[in-house]
């Protein structure tokens, strides 16, 4: 199972989760009636379903220290170590919606910041949604083998620094396979993209323990 790089296409046309989009757009809450949300959803309709590039690597959790190794990656993070407890393997993944969403946002950034804000939120919802669909599919594949997939953990969460991004990019060959690039400040273009790790462990393990 480990080692091979795979690409999973998430089909377009999933329903919009409007509540989730508004949660991204209005972190402080508020009246959404005034917002041109439906117009922005129409604008974003062709922005695509997303692609997930992934591989499964063995996890090695040394007893001492805060480093985790996942295949060839060495990741300095106590939080990740905790998240991968009991996992023999982990999925290393990168997902992206592609450039269309960035083009839309760039177009509206200067002429309607409100629409740009909503498009940002729509993009964030889309890429998370694509990953949820991907995770559900992988979980179904793992179940017969008695394995479960743990929640995703991204660089920037907890104490896992963004500086591990280049390692993940190299391992997944993101530039070539996904057209995904890193800026000098380690942010991704296309911007509606996610890199993450998710542990895989036997279904019985860690029962009753709080999920992260």
């Amino acid at each position: 199972m480990t080692g091979a790089l795979r690409l999973t296409e998430i089909p377009d046309g999933l329903d919009w989760d409007r509540r989730e989009i508004l949660r991204y757009a209005l972190p402080g809450g508020g009246d959404a009636e005034a917002l041109p949300l439906e117009e922005c959803l129409r604008l974003a309709a062709g922005a695509g379903g997303g692609r997930v590039l992934w591989r499964v690597e063995p996890v090695n959790l040394p007893d001492a220290g805060d480093e985790v190794s996942v295949g060839p990656l060495t990741l300095p993070s106590r939080d990740l170590k905790r998240a991968l407890a009991g996992c023999g393997y982990a999925v290393v993944l990168a997902a992206t919606l592609g450039m269309e969403m960035d083009r839309l946002i760039a177009r509206y950034r200067r002429i309607s910041p409100v629409r740009a804000l909503l498009l940002h939120a729509i993009g964030a919802e889309r890429v998370e949604r694509a990953l949820d669909v991907f995770s559900a599919g992988l979980s179904r594949e793992l179940a017969p083998e008695g394995l479960t997939l743990r929640p995703r953990f991204s660089p920037g969460y907890g104490d896992l620094p963004l500086t591990v991004q280049p390692q993940l990019f190299a391992l997944l060959d993101c530039e070539r396979r996904l057209g995904l690039t890193l800026s000098q400040s380690l942010t991704m273009t296309p911007s509606k993209s996610v890199t993450a790790l998710a542990g895989i462990r036997p279904a019985g393990e860690g029962k009753g323990e709080q999920s992260t």
């Binding site: 450039m99 960035d102 083009r103 760039a106 530039e175 070539r176 690039t181 890193l182 800026s183 000098q184 400040s185 273009t189 296309p190 911007s191």
Partner: peptide, 14 residues
């Protein structure tokens, strides 16, 4: 010669 690995402005930072 392959891609630089960075995205050009305005979408990226190169």
């Amino acid at each position: 010669i392959g891609p630089s690995g960075r995205m050009l402005k305005p979408y990226g930072d190169l």
